[in-house]
Protein backbone atom coordinates (compact mmCIF):
# COMPACT_ATOMS: atom_id res chain seq x y z
CA UNK A 1 0.00 0.00 0.00
CA UNK A 2 1.30 3.48 -0.84
CA UNK A 3 1.62 6.52 1.38
CA UNK A 4 0.74 10.01 0.15
CA UNK A 5 4.17 10.51 -1.40
CA UNK A 6 3.83 7.17 -3.18
CA UNK A 7 0.54 8.29 -4.72
CA UNK A 8 2.20 11.54 -5.83
CA UNK A 9 5.11 9.59 -7.33
CA UNK A 10 2.76 7.41 -9.37
CA UNK A 11 0.72 10.39 -10.55
CA UNK A 12 3.90 12.16 -11.65
CA UNK A 13 4.30 9.42 -14.27
CA UNK A 14 1.19 10.80 -15.96
CA UNK A 15 2.96 14.11 -16.67
CA UNK A 16 4.01 14.67 -20.26
CA UNK A 17 6.44 17.06 -21.86
CA UNK A 18 4.83 20.45 -22.52
CA UNK A 19 1.94 19.99 -20.09
CA UNK A 20 0.43 22.89 -18.18
CA UNK A 21 -0.80 21.36 -14.94
CA UNK A 22 -3.08 22.55 -12.14
CA UNK A 23 -2.40 20.88 -8.80
CA UNK A 24 -5.01 20.89 -6.06
CA UNK A 25 -4.35 21.15 -2.34
CA UNK A 26 -3.09 18.10 -0.41
CA UNK A 27 -1.62 15.04 -2.16
CA UNK A 28 -1.66 16.75 -5.60
CA UNK A 29 0.73 19.44 -4.32
CA UNK A 30 3.33 16.70 -3.67
CA UNK A 31 3.36 15.71 -7.36
CA UNK A 32 5.63 18.69 -8.09
CA UNK A 33 8.41 16.91 -6.16
CA UNK A 34 8.53 13.98 -8.60
CA UNK A 35 8.60 15.47 -12.12
CA UNK A 36 10.22 12.86 -14.40
CA UNK A 37 13.68 13.71 -15.73
CA UNK A 38 13.92 15.30 -19.14
CA UNK A 39 10.42 16.72 -19.47
CA UNK A 40 9.24 20.31 -19.12
CA UNK A 41 5.97 21.03 -17.34
CA UNK A 42 4.56 24.26 -15.89
CA UNK A 43 2.36 24.44 -12.85
CA UNK A 44 -0.62 26.79 -12.78
CA UNK A 45 -2.11 27.98 -9.53
CA UNK A 46 -5.61 29.44 -9.81
CA UNK A 47 -4.83 32.42 -7.60
CA UNK A 48 -2.85 33.82 -10.52
CA UNK A 49 0.53 32.30 -11.30
CA UNK A 50 1.86 30.13 -14.09
CA UNK A 51 5.33 28.67 -13.66
CA UNK A 52 5.30 27.96 -9.94
CA UNK A 53 8.61 26.95 -8.42
CA UNK A 54 9.59 25.32 -5.11
CA UNK A 55 9.09 26.87 -1.67
CA UNK A 56 11.43 29.80 -0.97
CA UNK A 57 14.47 29.59 1.28
CA UNK A 58 13.97 30.78 4.84
CA UNK A 59 14.09 34.57 4.85
CA UNK A 60 13.36 34.91 1.13
CA UNK A 61 9.59 34.42 1.36
CA UNK A 62 7.36 37.10 -0.15
CA UNK A 63 3.82 37.66 1.23
CA UNK A 64 2.76 38.70 -2.28
CA UNK A 65 3.75 35.39 -3.89
CA UNK A 66 1.65 32.45 -2.74
CA UNK A 67 -0.10 29.39 -4.20
CA UNK A 68 -3.78 28.42 -3.97
CA UNK A 69 -3.07 26.72 -0.63
CA UNK A 70 -1.86 30.13 0.65
CA UNK A 71 1.69 28.79 0.97
CA UNK A 72 4.65 30.99 0.10
CA UNK A 73 6.23 29.91 -3.18
CA UNK A 74 8.81 30.97 -5.77
CA UNK A 75 8.51 31.28 -9.53
CA UNK A 76 10.51 29.67 -12.33
CA UNK A 77 12.11 31.45 -15.29
CA UNK A 78 9.30 32.18 -17.76
CA UNK A 79 6.66 32.52 -15.04
CA UNK A 80 3.80 35.01 -15.16
CA UNK A 81 1.25 36.57 -12.81
CA UNK A 82 -2.33 37.44 -13.78
CA UNK A 83 -5.73 38.23 -12.31
CA UNK A 84 -8.34 35.68 -11.22
CA UNK A 85 -10.57 36.10 -14.27
CA UNK A 86 -7.62 35.45 -16.60
CA UNK A 87 -6.64 32.48 -14.47
CA UNK A 88 -10.05 30.89 -14.92
CA UNK A 89 -10.00 31.68 -18.64
CA UNK A 90 -6.96 29.38 -18.76
CA UNK A 91 -8.97 26.73 -16.92
CA UNK A 92 -12.40 27.13 -18.55
CA UNK A 93 -10.83 27.66 -21.95
CA UNK A 94 -9.04 24.31 -21.61
CA UNK A 95 -5.56 25.76 -21.94
CA UNK A 96 -4.52 23.77 -18.88
CA UNK A 97 -3.71 20.20 -19.98
CA UNK A 98 -4.06 18.27 -16.75
CA UNK A 99 -5.88 18.81 -13.48
CA UNK A 100 -4.98 16.78 -10.40
CA UNK A 101 -7.21 17.14 -7.37
CA UNK A 102 -8.27 15.40 -4.20
CA UNK A 103 -11.75 14.06 -3.45
CA UNK A 104 -13.96 12.79 -0.65
CA UNK A 105 -15.93 10.55 -3.03
CA UNK A 106 -15.78 9.49 -6.67
CA UNK A 107 -18.61 7.62 -8.39
CA UNK A 108 -18.25 4.99 -11.09
CA UNK A 109 -19.77 7.37 -13.67
CA UNK A 110 -17.07 9.99 -12.98
CA UNK A 111 -19.04 12.20 -10.57
CA UNK A 112 -16.91 13.79 -7.85
CA UNK A 113 -17.69 15.23 -4.42
CA UNK A 114 -15.06 17.20 -2.53
CA UNK A 115 -16.39 20.47 -1.17
CA UNK A 116 -19.02 20.00 1.49
CA UNK A 117 -20.30 17.70 4.22
CA UNK A 118 -23.79 19.05 5.00
CA UNK A 119 -24.12 20.37 8.55
CA UNK A 120 -20.51 19.56 9.36
CA UNK A 121 -17.81 20.86 7.12
CA UNK A 122 -18.37 23.78 4.79
CA UNK A 123 -15.15 25.12 3.40
CA UNK A 124 -16.39 25.84 -0.08
CA UNK A 125 -15.49 24.67 -3.55
CA UNK A 126 -12.78 27.22 -4.33
CA UNK A 127 -11.82 26.63 -7.95
CA UNK A 128 -12.72 22.93 -7.97
CA UNK A 129 -16.08 23.30 -9.75
CA UNK A 130 -14.57 25.40 -12.53
CA UNK A 131 -11.71 22.92 -12.88
CA UNK A 132 -13.79 19.76 -13.05
CA UNK A 133 -16.43 21.27 -15.33
CA UNK A 134 -13.84 22.34 -17.87
CA UNK A 135 -10.74 20.17 -17.81
CA UNK A 136 -10.41 17.45 -20.46
CA UNK A 137 -8.05 15.44 -18.34
CA UNK A 138 -8.79 15.08 -14.64
CA UNK A 139 -6.97 12.74 -12.28
CA UNK A 140 -8.20 12.30 -8.73
CA UNK A 141 -5.55 11.66 -6.08
CA UNK A 142 -6.89 10.21 -2.85
CA UNK A 143 -6.80 7.41 -0.32
CA UNK A 144 -8.94 4.45 -1.40
CA UNK A 145 -10.94 4.45 1.83
CA UNK A 146 -11.81 7.11 4.42
CA UNK A 147 -10.58 7.20 8.03
CA UNK A 148 -13.30 4.81 9.18
CA UNK A 149 -12.38 2.36 6.43
CA UNK A 150 -15.34 3.00 4.11
CA UNK A 151 -14.77 3.01 0.36
CA UNK A 152 -14.43 6.38 -1.40
CA UNK A 153 -15.04 4.77 -4.80
CA UNK A 154 -18.79 4.45 -4.96
CA UNK A 155 -21.71 3.50 -7.20
CA UNK A 156 -23.13 6.96 -6.51
CA UNK A 157 -21.76 9.88 -4.48
CA UNK A 158 -23.59 10.52 -1.20
CA UNK A 159 -22.15 14.02 -0.64
CA UNK A 160 -23.07 17.16 -2.62
CA UNK A 161 -21.42 16.99 -6.03
CA UNK A 162 -18.59 19.15 -7.27
CA UNK A 163 -19.01 18.01 -10.87
CA UNK A 164 -20.79 15.40 -12.94
CA UNK A 165 -19.23 12.71 -15.14
CA UNK A 166 -15.88 14.45 -15.29
CA UNK A 167 -13.23 12.29 -13.60
CA UNK A 168 -11.19 10.17 -16.03
CA UNK A 169 -8.74 8.46 -13.73
CA UNK A 170 -8.33 7.79 -10.01
CA UNK A 171 -4.97 7.05 -8.39
CA UNK A 172 -5.15 5.85 -4.80
CA UNK A 173 -2.88 4.23 -2.23
CA UNK A 174 -4.09 0.86 -3.59
CA UNK A 175 -4.62 1.18 -7.31
CA UNK A 176 -4.82 3.06 -10.60
CA UNK A 177 -8.35 3.00 -11.98
CA UNK A 178 -9.89 4.34 -15.15
CA UNK A 179 -13.51 5.49 -15.29
CA UNK A 180 -15.29 3.63 -18.09
CA UNK A 181 -18.92 3.40 -19.15
CA UNK A 182 -19.22 0.19 -17.14
CA UNK A 183 -17.46 1.34 -13.97
CA UNK A 184 -13.97 1.55 -12.42
CA UNK A 185 -11.52 -0.41 -14.58
CA UNK A 186 -8.55 -1.64 -12.58
CA UNK A 187 -5.38 -0.71 -14.45
CA UNK A 188 -2.65 -1.26 -11.85
CA UNK A 189 -2.30 -2.31 -8.23
CA UNK A 190 0.12 -0.85 -5.67
CA UNK A 191 3.05 -2.99 -4.49
CA UNK A 192 1.79 -5.54 -1.93
CA UNK A 193 -1.87 -5.05 -2.87
CA UNK A 194 -3.93 -7.80 -4.55
CA UNK A 195 -6.90 -7.51 -6.88
CA UNK A 196 -9.01 -8.96 -4.09
CA UNK A 197 -7.88 -6.21 -1.69
CA UNK A 198 -8.94 -3.58 -4.22
CA UNK A 199 -12.26 -5.36 -4.76
CA UNK A 200 -12.95 -5.35 -1.01
CA UNK A 201 -12.16 -1.65 -0.72
CA UNK A 202 -14.26 -0.61 -3.72
CA UNK A 203 -18.01 -0.16 -3.30
CA UNK A 204 -18.60 0.85 -6.93
CA UNK A 205 -18.49 -1.56 -9.86
CA UNK A 206 -14.92 -2.79 -10.34
CA UNK A 207 -13.87 -4.24 -13.66
CA UNK A 208 -10.92 -6.61 -13.59
CA UNK A 209 -9.76 -7.81 -16.97
CA UNK A 210 -6.97 -10.36 -17.17
CA UNK A 211 -3.64 -9.74 -15.50
CA UNK A 212 -3.36 -6.45 -13.64
CA UNK A 213 0.23 -5.21 -13.48
CA UNK A 214 1.84 -3.74 -10.38
CA UNK A 215 2.57 0.01 -10.40
CA UNK A 216 6.08 1.00 -11.40
CA UNK A 217 7.16 3.83 -9.15
CA UNK A 218 10.83 4.46 -9.91
Amino acid sequence: MLDKNGIAKRIAKELQDGYFVNLGIGIPTLVANYIPQGIAVEFQSENGVLGMGPFPFDGEEDADVINAGKQTITTMPGASFFDSATSFNMIRGQHVDLTILGAMEVAENGDIANWKIPGKMVKGMGGAMDLVASAENIIVAMMHTNRSGASKLLKKCSLPLTGVQCVKKVITNMAVLEITEKGFKLLEVAPGVTKEDVQKATEGTLLIEGNVPEMILD
Binding site: S84, S87, R92, M125, G127, M129, A133, T162
Partner: peptide, 28 residues
Protein backbone atom coordinates in the same frame (compact mmCIF):
# COMPACT_ATOMS: atom_id res chain seq x y z
CA UNK B 1 -17.17 28.62 -7.81
CA UNK B 2 -14.05 30.77 -7.81
CA UNK B 3 -14.01 31.33 -11.57
CA UNK B 4 -17.68 32.29 -11.46
CA UNK B 5 -16.92 34.77 -8.67
CA UNK B 6 -14.17 36.39 -10.75
CA UNK B 7 -16.31 36.50 -13.86
CA UNK B 8 -19.37 37.94 -12.07
CA UNK B 9 -17.09 40.81 -11.02
CA UNK B 10 -15.67 41.25 -14.47
CA UNK B 11 -19.13 41.10 -16.05
CA UNK B 12 -20.17 43.98 -13.79
CA UNK B 13 -17.01 45.86 -14.79
CA UNK B 14 -17.62 45.30 -18.48
CA UNK B 15 -21.38 45.82 -18.66
CA UNK B 16 -22.45 42.23 -19.25
CA UNK B 17 -25.67 41.38 -17.39
CA UNK B 18 -24.92 37.64 -17.37
CA UNK B 19 -22.84 34.87 -18.92
CA UNK B 20 -22.87 31.09 -19.32
CA UNK B 21 -20.35 28.88 -17.54
CA UNK B 22 -20.05 25.11 -17.19
CA UNK B 23 -18.87 25.45 -13.55
CA UNK B 24 -21.36 23.93 -11.14
CA UNK B 25 -23.63 22.30 -13.73
CA UNK B 26 -25.39 19.30 -12.14
CA UNK B 27 -24.55 20.51 -8.60
CA UNK B 28 -26.48 22.51 -6.01
Amino acid sequence: PQGTLAERCRAAQGGFPAFYTPAGYGTE
